[in-house]
Amino acid sequence: MAGSAGSAASSLVVEDVTLTYPDGGGRLTALDGVSLEVPGGTMTAVLGPSGSGKSSLLAVAATLVTPDRGRVVLDGVDTGTLSRAEQAALRRRRLGIVFQQPNLLASLTALEQLELMAHVDGRRPSRQVRERARELLAAVGLAGEAGRRPHQMSGGQRQRVGIARALMNAPAVLLVDEPTSALDHERGGAVLELLSRLTRERGTATVLVTHDRARLSVADRVVEMADGCLSSPCRGQSRG
């Protein structure tokens, strides 16, 4: 679905984005005119094999990579008009990212992992910050695990801490990269159901990148990516 960057109802709009990388004497096309609109409170699953361009799409949507052409509108802000410092501030405050591996700090408890996000955003430790962290741990079913460190938790619990951490700064947009790749079927299903519920409850625009076709019923919409294109013919020969 090609989105209009003027749509106030959408928290994420990727509009006609093309991204290329140097490749020997030429250019490799990772994204070829990709457009995607994700309204707040909904989850869009991006399905595709390894190398199809899914990771490039997430990197552009997260403003970590600047596309050759096109634009990204995040929570009503055209990110192409911002400086790199302003983009970083926008990421901290309005964007949450859930990685394949939660990458938790070994020395911190589950509660401290979340409190650290507030610190990175420039907020000092406070009762409000701690209450927010506890509320999110409860929301992901870990109210009783706040004092545990990563080595004391299961893989599914660590991934849920990663989800809670991504929500700590109340993001408008949540980008989720293969969150079930290291989990068994039951735990993976529970994580996806959790993401779907939190998307609706918190009004985030969630993009779920996955290669797993078995559990796509949690998404409001599914689009397929191949050769740098989303559910439509590419303009040219592309790989990504």
Rank of each mutant, 00 (worst) to 15 (best):
A5P: 08
S7H: 06
S10P: 01
S11A: 15
V13T: 06
V17E: 09
L19M: 01
L28D: 10
A30V: 00
V38N: 07
P39W: 03
V46G: 10
G51M: 08
A61C: 14
A61P: 13
V65P: 04
D78I: 09
T79M: 01
L82Q: 03
S83R: 00
A88D: 05
L90E: 11
R92S: 01
R93E: 04
R93G: 12
G96R: 02
V98P: 09
Q101H: 09
L104V: 00
S107D: 06
S107M: 13
A110R: 13
A110N: 15
E112Q: 08
E112P: 04
L114F: 13
E115R: 11
L116K: 11
M117D: 11
M117Y: 01
A118P: 13
R124F: 00
S126F: 05
R130C: 00
E135G: 06
A138R: 15
A139R: 15
V140N: 14
E145I: 09
R148H: 12
M153I: 10
S154A: 12
G155Q: 13
G156T: 08
R160F: 05
A164D: 09
R165Y: 02
A166N: 07
A166M: 07
L167C: 06
L175V: 04
L175Y: 07
V176P: 04
E178L: 05
P179T: 08
D184N: 10
E186L: 13
R187K: 13
G188D: 12
A190H: 08
V191G: 04
L192D: 06
S196T: 01
R197K: 08
T199Q: 13
V207K: 10
V207F: 05
H211R: 06
D212A: 02
V218S: 08
A219I: 09
V223M: 08
C229W: 08
L230I: 15
S232Y: 02
P233T: 10
C234D: 11
Q237N: 02
S238D: 07
S238N: 11
